Simulated assay, not measured.
Amino acid sequence: MIRNITFLMVLSLLTFACNNKVKEKNEAADNPINQSKETVIPETSLPLSNLNLPPGFKIQVFAEGVDGARSMAMGDNGTLFVGTRNENTIYALQDLDNDFYAEKVMVLDTTLEVPNGVAFKDGALYVAEVSRLLRYPNIEEQLSNLPEPEVIYDDYPTEFHHGWKYIAFGPDDKLYVPVGAPCNICERTDEDERFATITRMDPDGSNREIYAKGVRNTVGFTWHPETGDLWFTDNGRDMLGDDIPPCELNRATEMGQHFGYPYCHGGTVKDPEFGDKFPCSDFISPVQPMGAHVAPLAVKFYRGDMFPEKYKDYAFVAEHGSWNRSSKVGYRISLVKLDGNEAVGYETFIDGWLDEEKQEAFGRPVDILFLKDGSMLISDDFGDAIYRVTYN
Rank of each mutant, 00 (worst) to 15 (best):
L297C: 14
M255A: 15
P296N: 13
P262A: 11
A295Q: 13
V294F: 12
G267V: 02
P246E: 09
D305K: 13
P286D: 06
R303G: 10
E273C: 02
Q288N: 08
I284Y: 05
D305H: 05
F307N: 08
L297P: 03
G304M: 08
Y261Q: 08
Q257Y: 07
F274T: 02
F307W: 15
V299E: 12
M255C: 13
G304K: 04
C264K: 01
S285H: 13
P262W: 02
R251K: 13
P245S: 11
K277C: 00
F301P: 12
C247Q: 01
M290R: 09
F283T: 00
R251P: 03
F307S: 05
A252K: 05
P279F: 03
Q288M: 13
D271R: 07
M306L: 06
C280K: 05
Y261S: 00
H265E: 15
S285N: 12
A252L: 06
A292I: 00
I244F: 06
V299F: 04
I244L: 11
P279L: 05
G260P: 02
R251F: 00
P279V: 04
P245D: 07
F301G: 03
H293N: 13
V269T: 14
E309C: 06
V287F: 08
S281P: 02
M290G: 01
F301L: 04
F307A: 06
D282V: 05
F278H: 11
A292H: 01
K310D: 10
S281T: 14
M255D: 12
D305M: 09
K277R: 12
V269D: 05
F259L: 06
G256M: 11
K310Y: 14
R251T: 01
F278W: 10
V287E: 09
E309A: 14
V299A: 15
M306F: 03
P308E: 05
G256D: 05
C247R: 04
L297D: 01
E254V: 09
C280E: 05
H258I: 11
A292N: 01
Q288D: 08
G291R: 08
C247D: 15
G275M: 08
P286G: 03
H293D: 14
D305A: 14
K312A: 13
D305G: 10
C280W: 03
A292D: 01
G291E: 13
E273M: 15
K270T: 12
P296T: 12
N250C: 09
N250M: 02
